[in-house]
């Protein structure tokens, strides 16, 4: 089911176009990564979805709403560099956030304490926010974004500025939140997208280059390649491999043979048959499962 549909979204600043005719849909219940290098337009798109920026053209339609209607009730948003009323305590800010979402004082209080515990900053709840570390602010930022249980949670680079431990904590938290809401987050770190997202939106210079479930994209951009390792002299086998019908090229890289093939599965069978017949001293055979990085590089240089 589609939660949010974006059609032909464009944002122009003077002569610079930050987002160019982008269309996509967010499926309810998924975790979607908005992936792209710096300056690709990720933040601009999120800001437009959050209602902080007006699109130059195009429409944003939330399920159950008219196009471009005010959907702030339904979303939670964490900016890339969240700033708070730093003279407030963490707890005060959460209560204030809840009340702005028209929770009653009592509801806001209960929710605030619950979220302070869940995000692990309960101990610091009575400290002023200006004393918080980067990681604590990020967690407070997530807490304020989900205090009203939004249908769509949008996080702008939620882990980029954190140290490895803070990063791990936030990713774990996102993993939990995935159960209850649709998450759209931007990142330029591939492993983060790989780790928790179901779907990808790949952006470059304002264009949406690719989108879809992460496994489908992997398959689409998978290279047909087999890697072989032997004990002993590798050069002996290079020629023999080239004679196989589905092998197109063989390269020797650091004593690993990288075999380009026309069809991975067929090539595997041929290699195994030949190897069994001639008793090749194979130590490892890998059918290439291309990484997200390969995919990313391929799409970006397309």
């Amino acid at each position: 089911m589609t939660l949010l549909a974006v059609k032909d979204l464009t944002k122009t600043y003077g002569s610079h176009t930050a987002v160019k005719h982008v269309s996509f849909e967010l499926t309810k219940g998924k975790c979607i990564a908005l992936l792209g290098p710096n300056g690709a337009g990720k933040t601009t798109i999120l800001r437009m979805l959050a209602g902080l920026l007006a699109p130059s053209t195009g429409s944003i339609t939330f399920s159950g709403y008219k196009p471009n209607q005010d959907i702030r009730k339904e979303i939670g948003y964490l900016p890339q560099y969240p700033a708070f009323h730093s003279w407030m305590t963490g707890r005060e800010f959460l209560i204030y956030s809840g009340q702005l979402h028209s929770l009653s004082k009592k509801e806001a209080l209960e929710k605030a304490d619950l979220l302070l515990k869940k995000t692990g900053i309960y101990e610091a709840r009575h400290k002023r926010i200006h004393t918080y570390s980067g990681g604590m602010k990020q967690r407070l930022g997530i807490a304020q974004a989900i205090i009203h249980q939004p249908k769509l949670l949008m996080l702008d680079e939620p882990v980029s500025s954190l140290d490895p431990i803070g990063r791990r904590d936030v990713l774990t938290l996102m993993e939990e939140l995935k159960e209850n809401m649709t998450i759209l987050f931007s990142t330029h770190i591939l492993s983060d997208a790989d780790e928790i997202s179901d779907e990808l939106l790949l952006l470059k210079q304002g264009h949406l280059l690719e989108s879809g479930p992460i496994n489908d994209l992997r398959k689409k951009y998978q290279t047909a390649m087999i890697e072989l390792q032997f004990t002993g002299d590798i050069a002996l086998y290079e020629q023999k491999l080239l004679e196989l019908p589905s092998v197109t090229n063989v390269i020797n890289k650091r004593d690993v043979l990288h075999i380009s093939v026309t069809d991975v599965e067929q090539a595997r069978d041929e290699v195994i048959q030949k190897a069994a017949l001639e008793l090749w001293p194979i130590t490892q055979l890998t059918m290439n499962h291309s990484t997200l990085e390969d995919l990313f590089m391929k799409v970006m240089t397309k």
């Binding site: 902080l52 702030r72 009730k73 979303i75 900016p79 969240p82 700033a83 708070f84 979402h101 930022g141």
Partner: peptide, 13 residues
Amino acid sequence: KSGVSEIILVKPV
């Protein structure tokens, strides 16, 4: 300027 409004105004204020 401080950016607080980015967090406040995305709420239904």
